[in-house]
Structure formats: structure tokens, C-alpha cells
Amino acid sequence: MMRVDERLLHGQILIKWLEAKNSNYIIIIDDEVSNNPILKNILELSIPQNMIVEIYNLEKGAEILKNNKELNSSPIILVKNLQIVRYLHEKGVKINEIIIGRMPSGVGKKKIYSNVFISDADIETIDYFRREKIPIIIQMVPDSNPISIYDLIWGV
């Protein structure tokens, strides 16, 4: 599962998604976290004992995911924004579906759904995935209703 969530690893993931996806494997792809030992340490701190978390920068992340066969089980992949997903896709990473958990408010962003705010650059990225025929779904937790972002923006 490829999940876009600015907060990366937090309660929603630890309490809801790991169980729903029956996964104990998380990959975080983020330059800032990967280059900052303190941030890395903090995210690793809250991980339950039987879980694996790997943290990579974008370049290394793309390489690892491209060779998906080497991964022992299906991971939950966490990234902060859609542009990172696009980078991975352009580098040749196969992506079946993108789940958006949260894209926070900010200058020049407009709200399209609860906890999802998008900029013009986001719309361009979303359109890229639409052309690539990769579904983008807004779904905060497994029990919330999945919403297609294409339907929200361009209508059903």
C-alpha cells in the first residue's frame, strides 16, 4: 500500500492500518527523516517489537521498491506528498493504487475533502496519475469510506 500522509508514522497507522493490512512492515520514504538521525530515532521509538520499519531517502527508496521481489512481505509505504509518489513512479516503481490519508492546509491550497487540501502543483500531479490510470483514493482509516479523488475534482 502506498499512503500519502504528512504525519508519516503515527496513531492511525499503528492502531488501524497495520491490522487492516495484516502487515508488520513499513517503509518510510522521505529525505528529511532519512537524513536526520534524531527524526529517524523518534519514528523508530514508537514501533511495536515485532514490526520492521525501514527509512530511505527518495533515491534509495526508488531503488529498493523497484526491486520489489526482494521485499519479504507487502509493505505499507509512507510518504509525505504526491510529488514523492510521482518521483517513485517516474523512476520505474510499480504503483497499483495511492491512498491519501492527509494533505494539510497551507497557503494557496484549497480544501477538496476533510483533511485534504491541494495546490495547483498537486492538481497537476493528480492529473499525471489519472493519465497513468492509477487510482487515487482518499481514506483516512480502513473503516472510512474510500473516495476517488478524480471524482471529487473532475466529477463522476
Partner: peptide
């Protein structure tokens, strides 16, 4: 409030 949540990630960062 919650260990492992965003509030806890942020507090850990601030305490460092």
C-alpha cells in the same frame, strides 16, 4: 496524550 501518535513524535523532537 498518546505514545506513538503525532503529538508524541513532536514532543520527542522538541525534547531533543
Amino acid at each position: 496524550d498518546l505514545f506513538g501518535g503525532t503529538t508524541s513524535n513532536i514532543a520527542a523532537l522538541l525534547s531533543s
